[in-house]
Every structure is written in structure tokens, then in C-alpha cells.
């Protein structure tokens, strides 16, 4: 592994955020075994998320959802050359320590798993491994960045195949950013108070017109058109959880979603990518899920 040259620094904000920059324009796919991980890599996924159950199954089976078995994660690490991510419960910093020790490339502190702490998230500055966290609005995104998140994903509603919540969250985050850029400087103090976010980050977003880290989207993306929709809404890339391996032809759908994420502005490519994909995952309308059972409500 890396030899020290004396002047080298690992685990800096720049290498953590930089790692996310390299994932941009790509699709990160949920996989539950080596076979799926290889299908994802062959289809052109820019990373895989190793977990024991995809969100649709977590939702169907209920119970407490936790970090995956290290054996399962390491088998996937050994099987593919692309980055491997893994999920830990919100606030469960020991699960994060364990995942970091496995040499996983990115941790998702995820609302898809059952939270371990209903007040605090993980202090992500304490880790060398970078974290991605979910957000439903700008204030939530900036609170996670303040805790050390190096990448944000809009939450959507995982395991549904219903893209409407992802859309809402992308519109909310984008709208709140645009609002900040139109404000007078002396109004940003109150904006920070209203967003419940640190003033320094609010000011930075007002000046640059974007988050200081990469913004992916997640939760309910099931088709190439969904992926392209999110890219046109300003996402830097997409997570697809249950959408691929709960569908009729995962390899073909995975490749189609990769194409659609790159050529998101080209309707002809999108039409071709959408042809003959077979059965999509069986969807659940978010509006049919009682609010207390919605995963996006977890995290604050």
C-alpha cells in the first residue's frame, strides 16, 4: 500500500470530496452478492453499494436493518475493481469504525437502515474514510457537511420505485440554493438561522450557487428516464438501489441506466436505452405509505 514520502497526508477533506468528484456522471448500484456486483461492474457502474438486503426487501420484511456482514462486503471488494461502498446506521459510529477497517471506499450513513441514534449523526471528521449522507433539503445537507460528510445524496423514498420524492428533494435543494444566491449579504444571517445551518456554509453556497460537495440523487429511481430526469434536475450522478436487481433483466437495465446518466440530454439515446427492458420493479406509491413508515423521515 502507500509508502510514506514524509509530506503526504491521507484522509483530508480534499481527498474525501475529490473521491466523490470522480464518481460524477455515474451510477452507483446496490448489490447483495458477488454475482450482482460483477453484473454492475460489467454494465459500467462507477461504484457499488454492498448490502445484505436492498431497500425494497428491507421495507417488505421489516424489523431492524443493520450494517452488512463484513464477510459479504469483503467478497464483493475482492470481486470488483471499482469502488465499494457500504451502509451504516445513522449515528452508529462503531459500525462506521468496522466498515473503515475493511478498507471500504465510502460509507453511506443511511436512513435505509434503522437509526442507532435519534438525536446525533456520526462525527464524520473523526474518520479517514469519506461519508455520503442523505438530505431532503438544503439545511439538512449543510448540517451533514458540517459534520464532515464529503458527498450528499437527495433521499427520495428508497425501495419504492416511485421517483416523486427524489424529485421533491432535488427541487427543494435546488430552489433553496437559488434563493440564497439572490439574497443580500446582510440577509444571509437570518437565512442561516432559518435553514438551521452554519453561517459559513450558507455564505459559501450563496457565493458559489452550489453545494461545496458533490450532490447525487437516490430513492425511487427505477428507469433510464428516471435517471436522466434527476440529471436534468442538476444531480451529479445517481444511486439506484432496488430498481435494478428487482427488475426482470438486471444486466440490461443496469447498462441502460448508465447510458441514460451520461446522455441525459439526448432523447434519442434515452429512447433506445428505454426499449425492451422487460419488467420494471414493482412499485409502491409513496402516498400509500403511512408517514411514520417513510424512510426519508429518518434523519434531521
Amino acid at each position: 500500500m502507500s509508502q510514506n514520502t514524509g509530506s503526504e497526508a491521507t484522509g483530508t477533506a480534499r481527498v474525501k470530496r475529490g473521491m466523490a468528484e470522480m464518481l460524477k456522471g455515474g451510477v452507483i448500484m446496490d448489490v447483495v452478492n458477488v454475482e450482482q456486483a460483477k453484473i454492475a461492474e460489467d454494465a459500467g457502474a462507477c461504484a457499488v453499494m454492498a448490502l445484505e438486503r436492498v431497500p425494497a426487501d428491507i421495507r417488505a420484511q421489516g424489523g431492524v436493518a443493520r450494517m452488512s456482514d463484513p464477510d459479504m462486503i469483503q467478497k464483493i471488494q475482492a470481486a470488483v475493481s471499482i469502488p465499494v461502498m457500504a451502509k451504516v446506521r445513522i449515528g452508529h459510529f462503531v459500525e462506521a469504525q468496522i466498515i473503515e477497517s475493511l478498507g471500504v471506499d465510502y460509507i453511506d450513513e443511511s436512513e435505509v437502515l434503522t437509526p442507532a441514534d435519534y438525536t446525533n449523526h456520526i462525527d464524520k471528521w473523526n474518520f479517514k474514510i469519506p461519508f455520503v449522507c442523505g438530505a431532503t433539503n438544503l439545511g439538512e445537507a449543510l448540517r451533514r457537511i458540517n459534520e464532515g460528510a464529503a458527498m450528499i445524496r437527495s433521499k427520495g423514498e428508497a425501495g419504492t420505485g416511485d421517483v416523486s420524492n427524489a424529485m421533491t428533494h432535488m427541487r427543494t435543494i435546488g430552489g433553496e440554493i437559488r434563493r440564497l444566491t439572490s439574497m443580500r449579504e446582510d440577509e444571509l444571517y437570518v437565512a442561516a438561522k432559518e435553514l438551521q445551518a452554519p453561517y459559513a456554509l450558507v455564505k459559501e453556497v450563496a457565493e458559489t450557487g452550489k453545494l461545496p460537495v458533490v450532490l447525487f440523487t437516490a430513492g425511487g429511481i427505477a428507469t433510464p428516464a428516471d435517471a436522466a430526469l434527476m440529471m436534468q434536475m442538476g444531480a451529479d450522478g445517481v444511486f439506484i438501489g432496488s430498481g435494478i436487481f428487482k427488475s426482470g433483466n438486471p444486466a440490461q437495465r443496469a447498462a441502460a441506466c448508465v447510458k441514460a446518466t451520461t446522455f441525459y440530454q439526448d432523447a434519442k439515446v434515452l429512447a433506445d436505452a428505454s426499449r425492451g427492458l422487460g419488467e420494471a420493479m414493482v412499485g409502491i406509491n409513496v402516498s400509500d405509505i403511512p408517514v411514520p413508515h417513510r424512510l426519508a423521515e429518518r434523519g434531521w
Binding site: S2, E8, G11, V15, P83
Partner: peptide, 9 residues
Amino acid sequence: GRQVDSFES
């Protein structure tokens, strides 16, 4: 190495 070995120098 993996991401935890990523560095600036």
C-alpha cells in the same frame, strides 16, 4: 491502495 490510502503530497 483504496480510498483510505488516498493522499495529498
